[in-house]
């Protein structure tokens, strides 16, 4: 608030070459160190299912699985993912004609409308089911509350998680 002189591009472009595992394949790329992981996945690896909704860590549309755990990819630098394993929704199925059971459950329950939060919700659904946290609708609501959906009002997403849980033989959901 007291700065009177701006910094005039004082730092040169700095890059790093990183290797990581993405959706089951090893990839190696050279990236500018300030590049966010979300931008890297979208722009360098064409994984445009990673959506940018706020880029300050609130909306959750850029959620990915990092070593199996859901994280905001807008709040990581790409260089921080070196040596790690990343899953995006394409790891379930990237084929519209052969959906993964979770994706199929979302289609059956209409757990999406515009589709923008959907890849994040689908990945989170996978994690919730694996963690056994789809025991009741209330629990599902709590567990998906880190991802904003503006279209559905969430009920059909809750239904989709429960449907997917049944499909995958998870614990039978409570009413």
């Amino acid at each position: 608030m007291t700065t009177t002189e701006h910094q005039a591009a004082a730092v040169d472009t700095e890059t790093r070459t990183i290797t990581l595992r993405v959706n089951g394949r090893d990839v190696s790329r050279t990236v500018e160190t300030r590049t966010t992981l979300a931008d890297f996945l979208r722009d360098d690896l064409d994984l445009v299912s990673v959506h940018l909704g706020c880029e300050h860590g609130v909306c959750g549309c850029c959620t990915i699985l990092l070593d199996g755990e859901s994280v905001r990819s807008c709040l990581m630098l790409a260089v921080q993912a070196r040596g790690h394993e990343i899953e995006t929704v394409e790891s379930l199925s990237a084929d519209q004609n052969a959906l993964h059971p979770i994706q199929e459950a979302f289609a059956e329950e209409q757990g999406l409308q515009c589709g923008f939060c959907t890849p994040a919700m689908v990945l989170r659904c996978k994690e919730i089911i694996e963690d056994g946290k789809a025991r009741t609708d209330d629990e599902v609501r709590h567990e998906i509350s880190g991802i904003l959906c503006r279209c559905t009002g969430y009920q059909n997403i809750v239904n989709a998680v429960q449907n997917a849980s049944r499909k995958l033989g998870g614990k039978e959901a409570g009413a």
Binding site: V89, E90, Q96, A107, L112, G115, T118
Partner: peptide, 10 residues
């Protein structure tokens, strides 16, 4: 509309 959205190709 949903299959394309579900695989992240909106």
């Amino acid at each position: 509309e949903d299959p394309r959205l579900l695989v992240g190709r909106g």
